[in-house]
């Protein structure tokens, strides 16, 4: 993690572009022909009522679901089907609506798993690395210390020093969400997808979380796409907002534009 020069500048360069995405499960259409883009360095919110297809959209972006139609262009490269670990390798990290931490492991180990994608590729290298770690000598030991330093910086950043060695299953919900964010940051992503990062949090926790998101975007230039139901948070944090309803895009623009949009108001108030 290194702070970029002259942060908080949205260059206008498109980091991710989704075009005409349609996704269905059996007969159920979760997403119908949605297009939008995410600019490098911005905070992009995806909002919409329950069942609007927001989480499915994130799942499509990071390769967990494969859409039946449409194109995804990430960093100028168009892809059709991609497995989610490849997306991770290319710099897409995410958190989940229902916390998806590794419950049997400590906070520290959970964050360390975020570093795993920095490992060397290839069967031979992986085998050699595994053997080196088994004897725990030389480069393997040094590597562990290096990774630990990176992770400790994140622990500092998120102010979770005290729970470093606590198994995450024992942590309260709010802290689990924070650890999950930490794991995503440990991947040093270019694009960070946050699925309801503040769900179930109290005001103070929301404040902390907002601060982390802004700092992350501000200091490290991480592009962020987030799903959130708390409109106050969305309005304050995001540069642009895309609104989904029943799997379709109904609005796209700055927070002010979107909140004035009649379709959006109807969707939220349930007017048909």
């Amino acid at each position: 993690m290194s702070a970029v020069e002259n942060p908080r500048q949205i260059s206008g360069e498109v980091l991710l572009n989704v075009e005409d995405i349609s996704l269905s499960f059996g007969g159920v259409k979760a997403i119908r022909g949605v297009s939008f883009n995410i600019l490098k360095g911005e905070i992009r919110a995806i909002i919409g009522p329950n069942g609007a297809g927001k989480t499915s959209m994130l799942n499509v972006i990071n390769g967990f679901y494969h859409p039946q139609e449409g194109k995804i262009t990430y960093k100028g490269e168009t892809r059709s089907k991609m497995r989610s670990h490849v997306a991770a390798k290319q710099g897409i990290a995410r958190t989940f609506q229902n916390v998806a931490l590794f419950k049997g492991m400590s906070t520290l180990d959970n964050l360390m798993t975020g570093r795993l994608l920095k490992q060397r590729e290839g069967i031979l290298q992986q085998t050699v690395d595994m053997l080196l770690h088994a004897v725990y000598l030389g480069p393997a030991k040094r590597q562990e210390v290096v990774e630990r330093k990176v992770v400790e910086e994140i622990i500092d950043f998120l102010e979770i020093e005290a729970i470093r060695k606590t198994p995450v299953g024992r942590l309260p919900y709010g802290l689990q969400k924070r650890v999950e964010l930490g794991r995503a940051i440990a991947m040093e992503p270019e694009l960070l997808l946050l699925d309801e990062p503040m769900a179930g949090m109290n005001l103070e926790e929301k404040g902390d979380m907002s601060r982390f998101i802004i700092d992350l975007n501000d200091q490290y230039g991480t592009t962020i796409a987030l799903i959130e139901h708390d409109m106050g948070v969305v309005m304050d944090l995001s540069d642009r907002v895309v609104v989904l309803n029943y799997g379709e895009k109904i609005a796209d623009g700055t927070p002010n534009e979107v909140s004035a949009n009649q379709d959006v108001i109807d969707a939220y108030l349930g007017v048909s």
Binding site: A88, L116, M187
Partner: peptide, 11 residues
């Protein structure tokens, strides 16, 4: 602990 999440973080 969670194979899907593991794959999504690049394992």
């Amino acid at each position: 602990d969670m194979d899907i999440a593991a794959e999504i973080i690049g394992i």
